[in-house]
């Protein structure tokens, strides 16, 4: 998560209500935040809405940011929470769906894939491949998805991911590994043919 130049000064200005400084911060971070949210949610239109929400929240809460050196991980944490909140609103669950969750996870672990992947065509087109990979991501438990999207798809260091997820680097390593294992079990045969 690269810092933008003069980030510290910009943040201090924003804290005093300076919107043009906030616009500079937005420009520096809109693509990373948008792409992270996009891969968490899968749909570009939703990702745009959520990204806007993230920046509005960040502006409103900028005074709760104690150390300006941690702005990027703080911002990504807002993005993570907003993405998860959005998913919750989009896909309401029943209280008795816990069993279904267990089943889904069990099947994933067993290498079956009940909801995510369309029937494996021999030659997967690139659009189709994107849909396939995205829906496999959507099937991951969210802490694994967050770690995998940030650490693998978006290529941030485990240390940066740990700061966003407020966990240890060891935890990130383990989560990314578990995500990889689950994804590989699901996608292995399909990718082998593509």
């Amino acid at each position: 998560m690269q810092k933008c130049p003069d980030e510290h000064e910009l943040i201090e200005l924003v804290k005093q209500g300076n919107r043009s400084a906030f616009r500079d911060l937005f420009q520096a971070y809109q693509l990373p935040v948008y792409n992270f949210v996009l891969r968490m949610l899968g749909a570009s239109h939703d990702a745009e809405d959520v990204t806007q929400e993230v920046f509005v929240k960040a502006y409103r809460k900028i005074n709760s940011l104690s150390e300006s050196g941690h702005f990027s991980s703080w911002l990504f944490r807002i993005a993570k929470n907003e993405a998860l909140n959005f998913m919750q609103r989009r896909k309401p669950r029943n209280t008795d769906s816990v069993e279904a969750d267990y089943d889904r996870l069990d099947r994933q672990i067993a290498g079956e894939n009940p909801e995510a992947v369309p029937s494996p065509a021999k030659q997967v087109e690139s659009d189709e491949l994107e849909t396939l990979l995205q829906s496999a991501l959507n099937g991951l438990p969210e802490s694994l998805r967050t770690a995998f999207v940030l650490g693998v798809v978006e290529g941030y260091s485990y240390k940066e991911v740990a700061e966003v997820m407020k966990c240890s680097v060891g935890n990130v390593k383990a989560r990314v590994f578990r995500a990889r294992s689950l994804l590989s079990q699901q996608l292995g045969p399909i990718l082998a043919e593509s």
Partner: peptide
């Protein structure tokens, strides 16, 4: 290795289609 490459090559960086700042500025 194979699936990491697939994810990195397929889920590439995108830009939003609309001007996000406009919607943010109104709400600020």
């Amino acid at each position: 290795q194979k699936n990491t490459a697939a994810f990195k090559q397929t889920l590439t960086q995108r830009a939003p289609e609309s001007d996000l700042w406009a919607g943010i500025a109104v709400r600020l």
